[in-house]
């Protein structure tokens, strides 16, 4: 690794941008599918979920990075789980206190962030090997990439499924909403076709 500041900075940018496309957790790595499908019936819950994931990801990456030299190999996963579940509990409490309506809409999918593979995968692959700053930047990159993907999926489903975007009507009155897209079947189909689209785009680039 280069020591001059420019090289360092460009490395950070690279890490940040990796999560957005090259290593996008949903499209490229197929991680964290459960919340991706469950909370994307509308944009608002998807955005809230994304913010929760960013919060948990950043906090747990900081903690794991701090204790990376003290970790015993066989207790590693246990420590990760403990860290993540603590921050998820805190995120859940914050959500209940400041966004009660959203907390109800997301329901059990907030605690399910604990088993979101994105977080444990970043703790293992990045935070347990890198210093704090890199880990934080990586967490932000991954988190934002995850949130954007969620919002794209939710946007498609909300606009076509209800004719609204962020609860504001955007489609002409003559448009009949495809209610099926807000149901489970819509989640699977939309994600399937978006993945196919991502495949086509990445193929064109290479």
């Amino acid at each position: 690794m280069t020591t001059n500041p420019d090289g360092q900075a460009s490395n950070y940018t690279k890490t940040l941008l990796a999560g957005l496309w090259r290593e996008n957790p949903v499209f490229r790595l197929l991680l964290g599918m459960c919340p991706t499908l469950a909370v994307t019936a509308a944009v608002k819950p998807a955005l809230t979920m994304g913010c929760c994931v960013i919060f948990v990801l950043v906090c747990s990456n900081i903690m794991v990075s701090l204790m990376r030299n003290l970790l015993k190999p066989h207790l590693r996963i246990l420590m990760f789980t403990l860290t993540i579940s603590t921050f998820v509990t805190i995120a859940d409490l914050l959500l209940k206190a400041f966004q009660p309506a959203m907390s109800e809409a997301l329901g059990p999918y907030v605690p399910l962030i604990i088993v979101n593979c994105v977080i444990i995968c970043r703790a293992e692959a990045c935070a347990s090997k890198n210093p704090m700053l890199t880990s934080i930047i990586d967490a932000f990159g991954m988190g934002i990439g995850f949130t954007l993907t969620l919002c794209v999926l939710a946007g498609v489903r909300e606009v076509i499924g209800t004719g609204k975007f962020f609860d504001i009507r955007v489609m002409p009155d003559a448009f009949v909403p495809w209610a099926a897209l807000t149901m489970p079947v819509g989640a699977f189909l939309t994600l399937g076709f978006l993945l196919a689209a991502a495949n086509i785009i990445s193929k064109k680039h290479s």
């Binding site: 204790m67 003290l70 015993k72 207790l75 420590m79 860290t83 603590t86 509990t89 805190i90």
Partner: peptide, 16 residues
């Protein structure tokens, strides 16, 4: 082997 785990448990418990 496990001091970190015990310390971390107390710390996280306190945090919650």
């Amino acid at each position: 082997q496990s001091w970190l785990l015990i310390v971390a448990s107390f710390f996280f418990g306190l945090l919650i």
